[in-house]
């Protein structure tokens, strides 16, 4: 099995035509691409940096870089994956700047199994949305994902929140498919373990 499969080579994605027009100076075409992906890029940046101001700057810088480097977009990956890759790199650079004494990379903390071995075996109550109000639930989900190492957080964000395929996630992060799968497994298990304290069924509660 190849380490990275090239996705969607048979079908031409509508973005390809927009990128071609943008390269020829069609500002409206580029603006359409910005509209399509600005929310996603902001969310990715915010998830990785956990900082709203950084996420705003990164979103702007990502599109500026993309605009300046449109000629370098090869078209053998999706335009959105290419954008996400720029945003991830910008976000990791921000994290490094913030934590000058600590290296931040996709490889950080991947050696440890801590938190990835299931310990909590209680079933959860079916609908967290009905147990907590929207604000409380948002706080729980934010706090919980903040506790993951950046490498795990990033993989979970791209694969499970932004719905990129495993191959696209690998491409966006410059990782192999097995490396993405390994990080994804640990990220999911760590989040599950931490969320369990909020969502687990209480003793004696009916199924």
């Amino acid at each position: 099995m190849p380490a990275i499969q090239s996705p969607g080579t048979e079908e031409i994605h509508p973005d390809v035509a927009l990128v071609a027009r943008a390269r020829e100076g069609d500002t409206a075409a580029f603006e359409q691409l910005v509209r399509q992906y600005e929310r996603q890029i902001f969310r990715v940046a915010q998830h990785i940096t956990q900082n709203r101001e950084d996420a705003e700057d990164i979103t702007q810088d990502t599109f500026l870089k993309a605009y300046e480097k449109l000629d370098q977009f090869q078209g053998n990956s999706k335009f959105s994956t290419w954008l996400v890759r720029i945003a991830v790199n910008e976000s990791l650079m921000r994290l490094r700047k913030r934590k000058t004494s600590k290296t931040v990379s996709m490889d950080e903390d991947v050696q440890t199994e801590e938190g990835s071995i299931p310990r909590d075996f209680a079933e959860w109550r079916p609908n967290p949305e009905q147990i907590f109000d929207q604000n409380e639930l948002g706080d729980i989900l934010r706090r919980t994902i903040q506790g993951l190492p950046p490498g795990f957080r990033t993989v979970f964000t791209l694969r499970d929140i932004e719905n990129l395929s495993t191959e696209e996630t690998a491409e966006a992060l410059g990782l192999s498919v097995p490396a993405v799968k390994s990080r994804l497994l640990r990220a999911r298990l760590q989040l599950r373990e931490r969320l369990s304290r909020y969502f687990r069924k209480k003793e004696g509660q009916p199924a």
């Binding site: 075996f121 959860w124 934010r142 499970d160 929140i161 999911r188 989040l191 969320l195």
Partner: peptide
């Protein structure tokens, strides 16, 4: 683990955190 991991993914997908 299967059920609750699936719920973990669903709760993040279903609630826009940011």
């Amino acid at each position: 683990v299967v059920n609750t991991t699936r719920q973990t993914i669903e709760v993040y997908r279903g609630n826009e955190v940011y």
